[in-house]
């Protein structure tokens, strides 16, 4: 009897998965009818999406989101997301569009519609105490390394380099844990670590000494099947690369121009 009940529960759980096919209504019409574009962005990822002293979300990605809202002629509403829930928010329709520092990976393309071309790129690196003297990734073997719950490189750092990943919900917790010595380093996107290390008063004793790995493009995403919206976003991204908007935003938020953004600008500027 018990086994039967368990079987039913499993079946029900899985049936729900299969039934959750994306809605076929056109997203652009919905957004225009509603008058607001709801975009999922990061709120703890300086300088790509973070909160200013008044609590408003600002950064490179919120500015891109604003561009999209302006283009559609609607108001912008931003929903803060984290790595572990951003795709679910999009799948469930809580957000129309996700611009949330997400690395473009094939298995993610099965779940959400990632728009080509990629708008940005970054790799993985570790920020650690200078005293740790890390030289190569293998130096992490057996040591506790902080990470963010839901980041794809946690598994790789654990599986290939033997680090003990201690993953927290947000960057604030990680930086606290790093400061109090619960882990020897923080494995994260190099782009965000660069921005953090600029604050030498706080992080003067820390460095990013490993070679960056997995330089991978970022993808913004819409729900699966929203081809019209995806086409519009694709044109937006080409426009950003063409006009040098990304380079301009990097400068505005104090990030050195990344090779990816420069290359994309070169590629599209004469088209």
């Amino acid at each position: 009897m018990l086994r039967k009940i368990f079987g039913l529960m499993v079946a029900a759980g899985f049936a729900a998965t299969l039934a959750a096919a994306p809605a076929q209504a056109d997203a652009i019409d919905d957004i225009k009818a509603r008058g607001t574009l709801i975009v999922g962005v990061k709120a703890d990822y300086k300088p790509y999406g973070f909160r200013d002293p008044s609590g408003a979300i600002i950064g490179i990605e919120p500015e891109l989101a604003q561009d999209v809202a302006d283009k559609l002629g609607v108001k912008l509403e931003m929903v803060p997301v984290v790595s572990s829930n951003r795709m679910q928010f999009l799948e469930q329709g809580k957000i129309d569009l996700m611009i949330a520092t997400m690395t473009d990976r094939p298995d993610r393309r099965k779940v959400v519609q990632i728009v080509d071309p990629n708008y940005y790129s970054s790799g993985t690196n570790v920020m650690s105490q200078k005293a740790a003297g890390l030289k190569k990734w293998e130096d992490l073997k057996g040591k506790p390394v902080c990470g963010i719950q839901g980041a794809f490189y946690n598994k790789k750092t654990q599986e290939e380099f033997g680090a003990q990943i201690v993953a927290f919900k947000g960057t604030a917790e990680v930086y606290t844990a790093l400061k109090q010595g619960s882990c020897i380093g923080f494995v994260y996107d190099d782009s965000a670590l660069i921005a953090q290390l600029q604050d030498t008063a706080q992080w003067g004793d820390y460095e990013m000494s490993l070679p960056t790995i997995d330089d991978a493009p970022w993808g913004l995403a819409v729900q699966l099947g929203e081809d019209k919206f995806a086409k519009l976003m694709s044109d937006m991204i080409v426009g950003w690369h063409k006009s040098g908007r990304i380079l301009e935003l990097e400068k505005k938020y104090g990030v050195a121009n990344t090779p990816f953004a420069q290359a994309m600008h070169e590629k599209y500027k004469n088209m």
Binding site: M9, G13, F14, S83, D107, R108, G150
Partner: peptide, 19 residues
């Protein structure tokens, strides 16, 4: 949470957890 972040299999992992 780590597994469903890597493999995007939230409903399966949730069901497993409940069981």
């Amino acid at each position: 949470n780590q597994i469903w972040s890597d493999s995007v299999n939230v409903p399966e992992m949730m069901t497993t957890l409940l069981i």
